[in-house]
Each structure stands twice: as C-alpha cells, then as structure tokens.
C-alpha cells in the first residue's frame, strides 16, 4: 500500500462528492454542482470521472478504464495506474470482469449488468452551452423545461445538411424531463444508455455531477419525419469481422489505404480469441 488515503481523496471531499452523486441519482439528468478538487492530472484528462470513481471505489472493486473504447491508450493506462497505486484495487481490461468502468467517450459493446457502474468523463456537461453561454440562463431554461432552442439547432442541421449532422454528444431527454449531454460518445452508443447498470457522469473543470439510474428512459431528441438513427461506418471490422460494433478508421499508408477496426479493444480481442477473423487479419494468418 501507498501513503495515500484510500482512493486518493480525503474523506471530507469524498463525502461531499457522495452527497452530490446521490442527489444526481435522485434527479436523473440534472447537473448537480460540486466542489471539484484539483487532481494530479490536467483538466481534460478525466478529473471529473476520476473524482466520481474515487468516491465510488471499494477495496473489493475491479476497475476498468477505457479511452475511446481502448484499454491501452495513455489516458486509460495512467488512470488505471493511478487507482492501482492510490486505492490498491485490482484492474482489468475485460468488460465482464469489471465492477467499475471509467470511460472517455464510449460505452462498451458488451451489455453491462446491474452489478456494474459506468463512470463517464465529461468535458462540457451543459447541452445548451454552445447555444447560450450564460450559466444563469441555461439554469433557468432547465428549470422551465425550455428546450426549444435545442430543437431549433437540430432543425437548422436538417435545413443545412438535409439530415441531423450531430454525430457525437447527441442530446438526450432523460425520463421525460431533463435534456442532458451524454458526453462526447458517438450517437451509435445513445440507445445503449437504457441499461441495467448505473451511469454516473463527472465534469471536473465544470464542477458538475449527474447520473442515470438503471432502466431509466433515455430518448435521443429527433423529429417525427427525421427520426434518430444510431449510425456507424458502413463496414465490418477488419480484424474481427464484427458487423455490429462501432469502428475507428485507421489510415495505413499515404496512398489512400485504410482499415476499419473496432473501437472497443476488449470486444475485438475477445472475438479474435473466439476465432472470428476480419478482412486484414485473415490475410496475415494465411
């Protein structure tokens, strides 16, 4: 063990965060202000998610951290090491083994169970912020359930591009009341937000915590004649052949060569272990 308090934060701070989380769970989709602390990492690296995770972790937990679906990128590796050192918890890369999953901008492909908590890192928690910069005004708009501006924004998308061009951080309405920013997850992931696990959102720089309890209605905003569509690259994964997972496009040379691979590395590796092969992987094996 290290000389840090369990899970880094002091107990007073954890109580404050825990109270905010409970109010967030009681009011699904509402952004609860909290006294965000400075963390030993820069803003934008998940300081909000890390504080929420620190307040939730118990010594028995198994933690998984993903960054854009990947377990092996800098952000994911450093946060995993941070909690290994300060909380002494076990970590894993397997979605089904984890009890707490901290994520940056993806929901794992494998459906979560009710024993799992998904903690999102959120950069800008206010869905109305780019439409109305004043916090006093957006707060009033949420209080009055005045979300017309958001529909105007989506409508302008349609009039300009012929379809709703928003492809990530696609706004949702939670339990018929609060319009919420799902963090910059691709809109492909939006339908997964109605899940058995508990979802917690932490925005460190903006000092907000919000939550979606299990089995809560989460509806992506749309129009009757332009219904919401969860889109992805129209391609199977080049490594595991999955046709139903969210894909990253990877440029492989300077002559226009490219490949599509699952953004969820654990999902892709699990399929490859089970013998599934994609277009490029099969060639290598041959």
């Amino acid at each position: 063990m290290s000389d840090y308090n369990f899970a880094y934060l002091d107990e007073q701070t954890k109580r404050m965060i825990r109270r905010a989380i409970l109010k967030g769970v009681a009011i699904p989709g509402y952004q609860v202000p909290f006294a965000s602390r400075e963390m030993p990492m820069p803003y934008g690296w998940g300081t909000g998610g890390v504080q929420v995770s620190a307040a939730c972790l118990t010594p028995e937990d198994k933690l998984k951290v993903i960054d854009q679906g990947a377990d092996d990128t800098t952000n994911a590796v450093s946060i995993r090491k941070f909690f290994e050192r300060t909380a002494g918890v076990e970590t894993t890369e397997r979605t089904n083994e984890a009890t707490v999953i901290q994520t940056r901008h993806r929901i794992p492909e494998e459906p979560l169970t009710e024993d799992q908590i998904l903690v999102y890192q959120v950069p800008i928690p206010e869905p109305l912020r780019f439409l109305e910069p004043r916090e006093t005004e957006t707060r009033k708009m949420h209080a009055l359930e005045e979300y017309g501006l958001m529909h105007v924004k989506l409508y302008e998308d349609i009039s300009r591009h012929g379809h709703i061009a928003t492809s990530y951080a696609y706004p949702v309405k939670v339990e018929g009341r609060y319009v919420m920013d799902p963090s910059p997850i691709p809109k492909f992931d939006n339908p997964k937000m109605e899940m058995a696990g508990l979802q917690l959102f932490g925005a460190g720089r903006e000092q907000r915590i919000y939550a979606i309890p299990p089995f809560t209605r989460v509806v992506s905003l749309d129009f009757e004649d332009h219904p919401f569509e969860a889109s992805k690259a129209d391609h199977p994964c080049d490594l595991c052949g999955a046709g139903d997972s969210y894909l990253d496009e990877v440029i492989t040379d300077d002559a226009g060569g490219r490949m599509f691979v699952c953004s969820d590395t654990d999902f892709c590796a699990g399929r490859q272990d089970a013998g599934y092969r994609g277009r490029l992987n099969a060639e290598e094996a041959a």
Binding site: F6, K14, R18, L22, V25, C56, T58, E60, E114, L198
Partner: peptide, 19 residues
C-alpha cells in the same frame, strides 16, 4: 477503518438509491 468502511457503506446506499 473510515476510508474503506465508508466506501463500502456508500456503495450500499448508492445501490439502494439507484434501485
């Protein structure tokens, strides 16, 4: 052992409040 016991207790409350 305040940090660990409080963490376990909170998770129980969180579970109850979320369900």
């Amino acid at each position: 052992d305040a940090p660990r016991e409080a963490a376990r207790a909170f998770r129980a409350v969180l579970d109850a409040m979320a369900r």
